[in-house]
């Protein structure tokens, strides 16, 4: 038991928790991006997809709870480790050069904190509908199968037609991308991959994912804001309040 206790307390273990939960979140981000890109195939596809997700019932909740726990543990370990790190150097250098480290790797705590606030905001916005309630609650769509579902497509369009919201997402996505660029190689090292060839590969994968997430996630607010994606035409007030409705 003493050994297990020591394991739980060690920084190496805390880093392993950080790495495993971080990789789970990277996996989620990849899936979330694929789903989000359905915005480009029109309201029918993405509304049916969103409806499909919500109909998963218990499975959806298992996934949600897993992700929330992963995020919680990721945040917990980052707090624990960064407190330690601050205590390890109480007096800062007058002059300190960065040698090989990337800007993203040195600022993980800041990008992480920004992402945490964004996640809360993002959930309030598109999951709980509290940021723009008028486009969230009064917004339904009839699928070809006749099912009346939540109009996710118009909700997203209404969100990104607002320049402030579009801009806030732009910044958030830049933070996510910076965070991801260091994540894969760092997690791989923490999990014990030490062959130089594989390490080089993991750092390429991390950078590639950062670029894919940046372009992929940004493409949606840009497409909406520039009018490439227009709201789906229906007779609701929510649609009438939007730019380019039924044009």
């Amino acid at each position: 038991m003493f050994s297990l206790f020591q394991f739980l307390r060690s920084t190496v273990f805390t880093k392993i928790v950080m790495a495993v939960t971080g990789l789970m979140i990277v996996g989620f981000l990849a899936g979330h991006l694929l789903g989000n890109l359905l915005m480009f195939s029109g309201p029918e596809k993405i509304n049916a997809y969103a409806f499909g997700l919500k109909s998963l019932g218990p499975i959806l909740w298992i996934v949600r709870l897993t992700l929330i726990s992963a995020l919680g543990l990721h945040v917990w370990s980052s707090i624990k480790l960064s407190n330690r790190n601050r205590a390890a150097r109480p007096i800062a250098y007058q002059e300190k050069k960065s040698l090989k480290s990337t800007f993203a790797s040195r600022t993980m705590m800041y990008s992480g904190l920004a992402i945490l606030f964004f996640v809360i905001y993002h959930l309030l916005h598109y999951t709980f509908g509290l940021i723009q309630p008028q486009t969230y609650f009064d917004n339904s769509y009839t699928l070809k199968s006749g099912e009346v579902v939540h109009n996710v497509f118009n909700m997203v369009v209404a969100g990104f037609q607002n320049p402030f919201i579009a801009l806030s997402y732009l910044f958030a996505i830049i933070f996510v991308s910076a965070h991801i660029s260091h994540s894969v190689s760092s997690a791989s090292r923490t999990l014990g991959i030490h062959n130089p060839k594989y390490l080089a590969l993991t750092s390429r994968i991390g950078r590639a994912l950062a670029a894919i997430f940046l372009i992929g996630y940004l493409s949606i607010p840009i497409a909406v804001f520039s009018g490439i994606i227009k709201p789906a035409c229906d007779n609701t007030e929510a649609c009438a309040a939007m730019k380019d409705c039924c044009k």
Partner: peptide
Amino acid sequence: GFGNCTNTLDCE
């Protein structure tokens, strides 16, 4: 009381 490794590689 050393800090932990964030794999920034400044050490090497």
